[in-house]
């Protein structure tokens, strides 16, 4: 088939113009959004976005952030069984401000809201302030106005609700913020809906699943030793800049089990410690916790087990097991 001459000439030109147009637009949107007339942007505004919509409205564009948030404890702050049980079927007023905040402001305890309670702690209470969508970037976003606000990278922002943990973090005096560990950033796009998803450059986007993080052996040192007629277990929170575990009102726990066994492997004695923020026994950053146990009978082996129970579960999981042979005379 013969291509007409006219097409041979115009198609490359048209393609060239489209590519040039795209590159120009990409450059303007990402580098000089202020060149775009405000009146033009306003035409594309979607007013309901600033009127406290539900989380799924945000999902229409921010699919990845929504999916991450949906996995978080924040997403189920109002509907979680643990919360419902502990708040006596949500009747405890003190729980409301942080489980259904109306607006989270840097370091201020929020007020509870009346709408969209099933969404718990979601996009709107954290990001909509005074008719603008606040976040760590200045962006061209026709559906809603945006406002760059670096408070989102400060621990103080999380401290609005996580007050005790924030205080513990301040005492630790480290540079890493809450967001450094619990909102680790990866290169990604903020929007997953064309055409903005084609036009926005990638950014460093925080993990909105707010991962809890695993305690590593480097984070928490465990040692056991015999001293005279005692066995001493020492725990040291070396790297986590708040108590381990930590919570304002929840009840996460680290259980320390210590078992003394004789020659035949029979249990001679056993001890248990509950390390919990609500009992003021959680492990402080950089401070050793020592537990002394009397050796009242001959012992050949000491077994140590550390198990973790998060606030939202009744089940424990094994974190670490250690075993110490005892030589010579004991007990």
């Amino acid at each position: 088939m013969k291509v007409p001459n006219i097409l041979k000439k115009t198609v490359p030109v048209a393609v060239g113009l489209v590519v040039l147009g795209y590159l120009t637009l990409y450059f303007v949107i990402n580098q000089t959004p202020q060149w775009i007339p405000e009146n033009l942007t306003r035409l594309a505004r979607q007013a309901d976005l600033l009127e406290n919509p539900e989380a799924k409205r945000c999902f229409e564009c921010h699919k990845e952030i929504y999916a991450a948030w949906k996995k978080s404890r924040h997403a189920i702050a109002w509907v979680s069984e643990t919360y419902i049980e502990d708040s006596e079927n949500r009747s405890k007023e003190k729980c409301l401000p942080c489980h259904i905040p109306r607006q989270v402001k840097n370091g201020e305890k929020p007020q509870p809201r009346l709408d969209h309670r099933d969404d718990g702690i979601y996009c709107v209470p954290c990001h909509v302030i005074d008719g603008k969508m606040h976040g760590p970037y200045d962006l061209f976003s026709p559906p809603h106005p945006t406002q760059k606000n670096l408070q989102y990278r400060e621990s103080k922002f999380c401290g609005s609700c996580h007050e005790k943990t924030f205080e513990e973090w301040k005492i630790a005096g480290v540079e890493d913020t809450c967001q450094s560990c619990h909102m680790a950033r990866t290169e990604s796009r903020l929007v997953q809906k064309p055409v903005l998803s084609w036009l926005h450059s990638k950014k460093q986007v925080g993990d909105h699943s707010f991962p809890h993080g695993e305690i590593t052996q480097e984070d928490l040192a465990v040692t056991g030793e015999i001293s005279g007629k005692e066995f001493i277990v020492t725990l040291l929170n070396q790297k986590i800049p708040h108590r381990v575990p930590t919570a304002d009102n929840g009840d996460p726990r680290l259980y320390l089990y210590v078992r003394f066994l004789d020659d035949s492997g029979q249990e001679v004695d056993r001890f248990k410690e509950i390390l919990a923020p609500q009992q003021d026994t959680a492990l402080l950053y950089g401070k050793e916790a020592r537990f002394q146990y009397p050796l009242t009978a001959p012992v050949r082996k000491v077994e140590i087990s550390l198990q973790y129970k998060p606030a939202w579960s009744k089940d424990k999981s094994e974190w670490r097991q250690l075993s110490y042979p005892v030589t010579g005379d004991s007990g």
Binding site: K94, D248, K272, Q279
Partner: peptide
């Protein structure tokens, strides 16, 4: 006493479900 202390101190967690200020605890 060991068992009693453990059970008694457990109440710190229980009470904290309503008493959120440290003063009461």
């Amino acid at each position: 006493l060991r068992a009693f202390k453990s059970r008694f101190m457990e109440l710190k967690s229980t009470c904290s479900k309503c008493h959120t200020t440290d003063d009461v605890k």
